Simulated assay, not measured.
Amino acid sequence: MGKITCTSHYYLTSYAGTAAELGRWVRGHWGIENGLHWVLDVVFREDRSRIREESAGANLAMVRRVAVSLLRRAPGKGSGLTKRLKAGWDDDYMLQVLQGITAPVVR
């Protein structure tokens, strides 16, 4: 306890800013990434998934990410887990969640 450790990380980039700016950018990126993985693990128990058949794991991972996005936009208060459970129990709420799907914009 009380032991101090240091690590070095190396990045190849064309970014012309300072090391401090790059550090903020990298930490911000990983904060978002880690937040998504935490939600997927807590709300959908992704780490416990044992799906290994061909591309089924990748397909289900994409469905989970879409579900996270829809649940974040869904009306009401509560955590993602609460909203997921409510959508499973209440068909009307499920329809509200699914109404978060918007048509793609073709330009």
Rank of each mutant, 00 (worst) to 15 (best):
A103E: 15
T5E: 08
Y11R: 03
A61H: 07
N59S: 12
W38F: 13
G2E: 09
I32P: 03
A20P: 03
S8P: 01
C6A: 08
A16H: 12
R64N: 05
D91C: 04
V43Y: 05
L22N: 00
G35P: 00
A103R: 13
G28V: 03
D41S: 10
R107C: 10
A87K: 06
D92T: 14
K86N: 01
V43Q: 02
Y10K: 05
G76Q: 02
L81T: 15
C6S: 08
H9I: 05
A58I: 04
R84T: 07
M62T: 12
S79V: 02
G31M: 07
D92Y: 03
E46P: 03
P75F: 05
W38A: 14
L71K: 04
N59A: 15
H9R: 07
P104I: 02
Y93V: 00
A20E: 15
H9D: 00
R24V: 09
K3W: 09
S55N: 13
A61M: 11
V42N: 09
T102M: 13
Y15G: 01
I51E: 14
R45S: 14
R45C: 11
R52I: 02
D47R: 15
L81A: 12
K77R: 15
V26G: 01
Y93M: 05
Y11I: 04
V105I: 14
A87Y: 06
S14R: 13
C6N: 04
H29N: 11
G23A: 15
Y15I: 01
R45A: 15
R50T: 12
S14W: 01
A61Q: 12
I4A: 01
M62R: 14
N59I: 10
N34M: 04
R24G: 08
G78E: 08
A16W: 06
H29Q: 12
T5R: 05
M62D: 11
P75C: 01
G28D: 05
K83N: 00
A20L: 09
K3H: 07
S8W: 03
V43N: 06
R64V: 06
G31N: 12
R72L: 15
L60E: 14
S14D: 15
G31A: 10
A58K: 13
R64M: 11
R73I: 02
G80V: 05
L36T: 09
H29K: 13
A58N: 07
L71S: 01
S49Y: 04
V39C: 09
N34K: 10
R65C: 05
T102P: 00
H29R: 14
H9L: 06
S8L: 06
E46K: 10
T5L: 09
G57K: 09
I51G: 02
K83V: 04
K86W: 09
Y10A: 03
